[in-house]
Design a protein around this nucleic acid. Structure first.
Length: 417
DNA sequence: TCTGGGGTCCTTTTCCTT
DNA sequence: TCTGAAGGAAAAGGACCC
């Protein structure tokens, strides 16, 4: 809705901020283990565990006294898995996110290896988001370490294009958590997201509409949120490398090459046009659990093992649904074969469910429809078409303690189906 | 010795009904 | 009874993101 203002009163300019925590996981770990500062540290590796004895010997408050030599190192890691993130010191060795653990171990065998501790990151995530909403209530969650904030109507949100408010938020987050972040403020989400990358770490970037040509167009297309490796390659094949190249293309040409929706979106993105609002609340669409095996498995040869994994995944999804108060109608499975090809099968039920047995049964039917003659490396179970329990006119889920639902196990028939 | 897990959204295909 | 068009829902796949 366009609002009307009295003559001489200017409408507030739309100011949208994108806030990105700096090296979030690694920074949280360094708060716990300050003795690792400056060392190559790698976080990740599927089944990495900090030695139980270590955690027992040192109380939570004494973790900083664990000697550096006592930490597990990459050299001793076995198995599959990838790096989730690495500290700057580790990156110096050529290690980066999504790299295989074994490759990383060759590059820097002495790097300290820490398990991913989502519980801890979520704790800090809640803390920094609480700080933000105290100051600016219109905030959109974009995962554990990112948010969009609508500065438009916040006191001070217009001063210096948003810089004053951004500074206040940075300072408040640092005081509350000890963590730093980078903030970009722009007329919309797309530009704000790009702006937050300009000045990392602990930086603030202000972008105005008039800066498009100078600050945005020279950038690689890939910097646009929504252009991934596939789109980048296709653009490059047409001689489009920078955002400016993209902006120079007629809208119609992009629509013809990339389809109606994506082509038009590309054109808008290049011209800095993005009207998406900052959404403060949203409902989940699906919940899933998946796991990559230590070795590739075969439906017939590894029947017992697969059956147990399959049952566990169904129980986990059911427990997730129950704990969060959802049911779902569409049950699906996902397989990743040894060649990394992915297949999915799903089936929609007449009635939504959060029951492990029902999920297991329906997922089993889905599994019957895929090629099980070949070995595969990953199995997943998904429930979609979610509905909130309290929106169905049913009593809300009992205040479930996590794990309570998970303890209700399915009698394992020994069969995959 | 490659390549995790949990999501969203979009497009295309398929199937069913009218 | 056959055929085709049209539209919707479900299914499958793929790109992308954190």
């Amino acid at each position: 809705m366009a609002r009307r203002y009295a003559p001489g009163v200017t409408a507030p300019t739309r100011r949208i901020a994108h806030l990105d925590m700096d090296a979030f996981y690694a920074s949280v770990e360094l708060l716990r283990y300050p003795q690792l500062k400056g060392l190559p540290v790698v976080i990740g590796g599927g089944r990495t565990r900090l030695d139980e004895a270590l955690r027992e010997k040192y109380s939570d408050t004494a973790l900083r006294f664990i000697p550096v030599e006592a930490f597990p190192v990459l050299r001793d890691y076995t198995g599959r898995g990838v790096i989730t993130t690495a500290t700057y010191a580790a990156r110096q060795f050529g290690i980066g996110s999504a790299m295989g653990m074994m490759k990383a171990a060759r590059l820097c065998p002495q790097a300290v290896l820490l398990p991913v501790d989502f519980e801890e990151y979520r704790k800090y995530s809640r803390a920094f988001k609480a700080v933000i909403t105290e100051i600016a209530p219109v905030m959109e969650d974009r995962g554990v370490d990112e948010v969009y904030i609508d500065f438009t109507a916040v006191p001070g949100g217009q001063r210096e294009g948003g810089r004053v408010l951004a500074r206040l938020i940075q300072k408040s987050i640092l005081e509350a958590t000890g963590l730093t972040c980078s903030i970009g403020v722009a007329p919309n989400k797309q530009l704000a997201k790009m702006a937050s990358e300009f000045n990392k770490p602990n930086g603030i970037s202000i972008v105005h509409e008039a800066d498009l040509q100078e600050k945005i167009w020279p950038l690689d297309c890939r910097k646009i949120n929504g252009i991934g490796p596939k789109a980048e390659a296709k653009l490059a094949a047409q001689g489009i490398h920078t955002v400016g190249d993209l902006a120079a293309r007629p809208r119609q040409a992009l629509v013809e090459a990339f389809g109606k929706a994506y082509g038009a979106w590309l054109h808008d993105a290049a011209w800095g046009r993005d009207e998406r609002p900052v959404v403060t609340e949203s409902e989940p669409v699906s919940m899933s659990r998946e796991t990559t095996f230590d070795r590739d498995l075969h439906a017939a040869h590894d029947r017992a093992e697969l059956g147990a994994v399959f049952t566990r995944l169904c129980e986990q999804v059911a427990a997730d649904l129950q704990r969060k108060g959802y049911t779902g109608r569409t049950i699906g499975v996902k397989l990743r074969y040894t060649d990394f090809r992915i297949v999915t099968r799903d089936q929609t039920l007449a009635q939504p469910t959060a029951d492990a047995k029902t999920i297991r049964h329906t997922a089993g039917l889905c599994l019957k429809r895929v090629d099980l003659a070949r070995r595969f490396r990953l199995l997943g179970v998904r429930v979609g078409g979610l509905q909130r329990l309290d929106s169905l006119g049913k009593p809300a889920a009992a205040p479930a303690s996590p794990g309570q639902a998970a303890t209700k196990t399915i009698a394992d028939s020994g069969s995959l189906f």
